[in-house]
Design a protein around this nucleic acid. Structure first.
Lengths: 230, 230
DNA sequence: ACCTGAACACCGTTCAAGT
DNA sequence: ACCTGAACACCGTTCAAGT
């Protein structure tokens, strides 16, 4: 309560700032993590944080890394590549659903991809390689999987924190065809495991496509390598 | 320049506010549309806007509707359902790429889905229905397509407005396996039509899966309807 | 080196007052 | 009814000053 004297050491550190940021994020998962809120939690002036982080962006980068560090994905060694991808995706989903702030910070807030995030994709990459993917195609597939997984999780979180409520008058403004569609959507979302089912479905289509696609590419490459000009 | 007198009519209207908001959005596609910025463009006090819109949310809702109104998707009547979905998805992508603000406002800012947005999906729904989808399954498929299309476009825009630059020291901190992966990603993204190709690929997988899935469901339903107990 | 305070340029919204 | 101005509670960041 007693206001600190000018320049008096508050005894904060990079770690304690990070911990405070984690607390702020945990207390309000929906809202953005602001420097001011972190400073308030630490009972210091907002500017004190600048001694440990260059900017808000810098703090968020460290925060995402800290949050991601807790994620350890283990896959059975003898599982098929497709199964490994499935396990990877579901582990990601579970982890993000418990830490709703992460998805925003990781892929939407500023677009910066943290190192920790990339390192977490090792299992994914190894699975793709063993499916015969290589070079730019492997890179493209990685980007694709990220987009689908993050998109699906983001949509799920958004829906959970603010269910798309539609007013009656809005519903009546709709085209009759779409009124039926909206009813179907509501029916679909009424199922208690709706989000899990939708996620499962997307990942299944994903691995399905990769298996087929990777197989084709692999066959083509093997064909090219064969001595056809003899 | 001359400051308006208190209460003096500025002569703005719901339409002029909306137009100003469109201008603001066009001038800074990356940044959010703020009430203050719109007021500045109109040369009125921010509070004047509250005479025409209940809140910032209300203004954004109207803004998205106005932006979406310009989108008219026409599909050849005799195209296959899958082809219709493809055309729909690409029309959406083209439209959104020219109006980068839309994607944020529509699906990420507050999560409110505008009526205009839903009405735009009529073609999509008709295509799905003619593929044999119905009920909650149709609703689920609609949600899925939205998620994929919006996710892909969002990722593309984000990448364009702030390319994921990675510092050298960051690269060296990576696991060797992922260093190779990141190199592949860079190679993939070096292609000039990279985004278009990735989008094409995703939509192709999407229609592929729906055709197969819808077909299965259709067959099962037909089977059920058949007089098997005779 | 670490921290504060004042300042600047933002943001959305409420409330009272003026025409 | 329409609009302003002051006020409130935010936000990130710069800069000078204090210990």
């Amino acid at each position: 309560m007693a206001p600190r004297k000018r320049g008096r050491r508050a005894g904060i550190s990079r770690e304690s700032v990070l911990q405070a940021a984690l607390d702020v994020a945990a207390n309000d998962p929906a809202g953005p993590v602001s420097l001011n809120a972190v400073a308030r939690a630490l009972r210091v002036s907002p500017m004190a944080i600048y001694s440990y982080f260059a900017s808000r962006d810098d703090l968020l980068q460290a925060l995402t890394a800290a949050l991601l560090d807790g994620l350890v994905i283990a896959v059975p060694e003898h599982a098929t590549p497709a199964r490994k991808i499935e396990i990877w995706a579901h582990a990601f989903r579970d982890y993000f659903l418990e830490r709703p702030q992460l998805i925003t910070m990781l892929s939407w807030d500023n677009g910066h991809t943290s190192i920790a995030w990339i390192n977490q994709s090792k299992i994914l990459m190894e699975a793709l390689e063993s499916m015969g993917l290589d070079g730019p195609e492997l890179g493209e597939t990685l980007l694709w999987i990220w987009s689908v997984v993050m998109g699906a999780i983001h949509a799920e979180l958004l829906d959970k924190q603010s269910p798309r409520g539609m007013q009656d008058w809005e519903f009546e403004d709709l085209d009759p065809t779409m009124q039926r569609g909206v009813r179907f959507i509501r029916e679909a979302m009424a199922a208690p495991d709706h989000h899990a089912r939708l996620f499962n479905f997307q990942i299944a289509r994903l691995t399905d496509a990769i298996e087929r696609w990777g197989g084709e590419r692999f066959a083509r490459r093997t064909l090219k390598a064969a001595p056809q000009d003899i």
